[in-house]
């Protein structure tokens, strides 16, 4: 038997909270988490990636310049360093990321199993011409992603942090229709 590892436990697909600009970083809600993260590493810099994840979740799916500056100050890092890191990794967004974020895997296994159709469908439904952009209605940010590690269930997509495997264009349509 070949068990399927569940990609992620289903969560409610709720639209993201609008971006909040905190007066300073970390905002009260994140203080405890950030301190816990810092305690894990011998240097402050090492906490940057996990704290950027927190900042992005807090900021409604993207890290605004204000949040970025806040993180830099909090970790005693140069703003350039933080921006350099932020733009290196494909999971961080430096622009408003819509109410929902949709990743479509484009790598070989998914490509063989229908990723191009999914991508076309996603762009069409989201009303954008290119990946990496938010459609006019502000609903979706569609991103091309490289292999998501779900190749045995290709084609794979992510919607708001939840993986969906063996997705058909119709299935994707339904998923997207379920998003506000």
């Amino acid at each position: 038997m070949n068990p399927r590892a569940p990609a992620a436990e289903p969560k409610d697909v709720a639209p993201r909270a609008p971006a909040v600009v905190p007066a300073s970083f970390p905002p009260a809600e994140l203080k405890a988490t950030c301190e816990k993260i810092l305690a894990r590493y011998p240097t402050k810099m090492a906490a940057l990636l996990p704290i950027l994840h927190e900042a992005q979740a807090f900021g409604g799916g993207w890290v605004s310049p204000e949040l970025e500056a806040g993180v830099a100050a909090y970790l005693d890092l140069s703003p350039a360093h933080v921006h350099g890191v932020l733009t290196f990794y494909s999971m961080y967004n430096t622009k408003p990321a819509g109410r929902h974020e949709l990743w479509v895997c484009r790598t070989l296994s998914c490509w063989r199993r229908g990723a191009p159709e999914l991508r076309a469908k996603a762009l069409d439904k989201a009303g954008c011409t290119r990946t990496g952009e938010v459609g006019e209605d502000g609903r979706f940010l569609v991103k091309d992603m490289e292999c998501l590690g779900l190749c045995e269930q290709a084609p794979a997509i992510w919607l708001d942090g939840v993986a969906h495997a063996n997705v058909t264009p119709e299935g994707l349509e339904q998923l997207m229709d379920g998003c506000e």
Binding site: A5, C147, G149
Partner: peptide, 11 residues
Amino acid sequence: ESEPGTFKDRY
């Protein structure tokens, strides 16, 4: 585990 086609470590 970012190697395309690879998902063993995830299991």
